[in-house]
């Protein structure tokens, strides 16, 4: 491996950016594709699939064997709202290997007693999200029911093209949310990416059951190709 490629690989990983190193295992020839350049690459389909699974793998193209060293940033979940659902979501996220952060400026909700061993930020989303650097490997769950708290995070999540954005609330609540976002200049197509009401439709009742449906929906968004994803009813 060329030292310059190794350096870029290490730099990109530190910056939480996706990268794939392509090695021809017969000739030893190598090249590196940064996440932002994948769409235009000849092997785009293979690279995208490997990144989505977050796994290195061998592929065969035109009789040549290539090894893809895949560096996908670990997927994160950011919950806006230190609410009951978030309390149930926290241990589930840990089990499923997601890196979880909970944000809620309401200090009565965001207490370490309610959220042991969770990264908890008792601040407004607009204060802390710039430092968290939302990206394609981040899921954002809006759980406060309060536009004052949820909306700034929603705007940031839409701009960052987060792989998953879910929002709690009835269809009526969501319709008003969509109107507010259109007023912010987002197109209808952008807003279709919001999963609302949040969670897979499994008839969840309790906060823990809703948390299961949310984790399930996040995993589906991460692992399934957009084209194969079933449209929400």
């Amino acid at each position: 491996m060329r030292l310059d490629l190794l350096k870029i690989l290490n730099e990109e990983r530190a910056a939480r950016r996706a990268t794939v190193l392509i090695t021809n295992t017969q000739s030893g020839e190598q090249r590196l594709v940064k996440g932002a350049d994948i769409a235009g690459d000849a092997l785009a389909e293979h690279l995208d699939a490997a990144l989505r699974m977050g796994k290195s793998r061998s592929i065969e193209v035109d009789g040549q064997t290539y090894f893809l060293t895949v560096q996908a940033p670990p997927a994160r979940i950011i919950c806006i709202g230190a609410v009951h659902i978030s309390q149930a979501l926290a241990p589930m996220a840990r089990l499923a290997d997601f890196d979880l952060t909970i944000i809620d400026p309401r200090t009565a909700f965001a207490t370490p007693e309610r959220f042991p061993d969770v990264r908890l930020l008792a601040q407004w989303p607009q204060e802390v999200l710039p430092d968290l650097r939302l990206d394609r490997y981040t899921a954002v769950c809006l759980l406060t029911h309060d536009p004052k708290i949820d909306d700034p995070a929603l705007i940031a999540a839409l701009r960052a093209e987060c792989f998953y954005i879910g929002a709690l609330g009835s269809r009526k609540t969501h319709a008003r949310r969509v109107e507010r976002m259109m007023a912010e200049g987002f197109a209808e197509a952008d807003l279709k990416r919001i999963h609302a009401p949040i969670g897979l439709d499994i008839g969840s009742v309790s906060p823990a059951e809703i948390a299961v449906s949310v984790i399930g929906e996040i995993i589906a968004a991460l692992r399934k190709k957009p084209l194969r994803a079933e449209p929400k009813a």
Binding site: M1, L3, L6, K7, N10, R13, T25, S56, F67, Q71
Partner: peptide
């Protein structure tokens, strides 16, 4: 991933370095 950072550091320190990868 940390291991690849270490490979860079070893090389930077002037050592000959090889990387073995399960393919």
């Amino acid at each position: 991933d940390d291991i690849l950072s270490r490979a860079e550091a070893w090389k930077g320190a002037g050592k000959g370095v090889a990387i073995a990868t399960v393919i």
